[in-house]
Design a protein around this nucleic acid. Structure first.
Length: 229
DNA sequence: AACTTTCCCAACCGCTAAGTT
DNA sequence: TAACTTAGCGGTTGGGAAAGT
């Protein structure tokens, strides 16, 4: 995927620097008014894109790594119940996103379809007395590639690369390094009544609505925030 | 070793619901 | 209450990497 610009809007994969910038501004403004956040953050991204990046990748409560057997079972169960209502299913799986579940299901269904196809072929080629009910039983689905070697290696690779832990530790380090113009400083300075000075997570929904009434001076201040490179 | 196929997932698109003015 | 904005959802696509030939 190659990042591209359409007008002033950047598209394609996010860089580490963009992630950091987005995380910092979400910490400041909270998870809302994404168009505005995209604008003031200086990210050449649409609000929609920012929101998606946050929700699907940067949110601190997201779980990493493969689905556990328990989660897989739950997904199957809930999909039976609710169909393709991924967001609703995701609500029952803390730390998992609708996108993740959707992708997982799609992969799973593809495999399942292939399995069925091959099994049906082999069944039709062998004894007609063998029951096809085995093929469609949920057990045969559940046995499918749960410990799939490929996904294991993919996860290992991910672990070797850039992780969210690293993003968050870098954000923390930045907050400590910066002094007067730091986020914490800024927050203390212009939003001192907005809650604890050091939030454990970037979820800032407790912050006052006053945040949205920043004046021009504060706006300039935001735009001049140091960009870590 | 080079090429092709398959798998996986991040990101985008279009639509709709909910909220605001 | 209509018009507009914002947020969220589900479907789809594109590309990197692993596996297969």
């Amino acid at each position: 995927m190659v990042a591209a610009r359409e007008g002033n809007t950047r598209r394609g994969p996010w860089s580490e620097q963009e992630d950091l910038q987005l995380v910092r501004f979400v910490r400041l403004f909270g998870e809302r008014r994404w168009d505005y956040l995209a604008k003031v953050s200086g990210l050449s991204r649409s609000g929609k894109s920012c929101r998606l990046r946050w929700v699907n990748y940067l949110h601190p409560s997201l779980k990493r790594g493969p689905m556990t057997p328990q989660e897989e079972e739950l997904v199957i169960e809930l999909h039976d119940k609710w169909g393709n209502r991924w967001a609703r299913i995701a609500q029952s799986l803390p730390g998992r996103t609708d996108n993740e579940i959707k992708n997982y299901w799609r992969t799973r269904m593809r495999k399942k379809a292939q399995e069925r196809k091959t099994t049906r072929t082999s069944v039709s080629n062998s004894s007609p007395s063998s029951s096809s009910s085995n093929v469609s039983s949920s057990n045969s689905e559940e046995n499918m590639d749960i410990g799939d070697k490929k996904s294991e290696t993919v996860e290992l690779k991910k672990d070797e690369g850039f992780t969210m832990d690293q993003i968050w530790s870098e954000i923390g380090a930045l907050d400590q390094m910066d002094d007067g113009a730091s986020f914490e400083g800024l927050k203390e300075g212009c939003c001192s009544d907005l809650g604890p000075s050091s939030l454990p997570s970037p979820v800032c929904e407790y912050w006052s609505e006053a945040l949205w009434r920043i004046d021009d001076e504060e706006y300039e201040m935001l735009l001049s925030l140091p960009v870590h490179s």
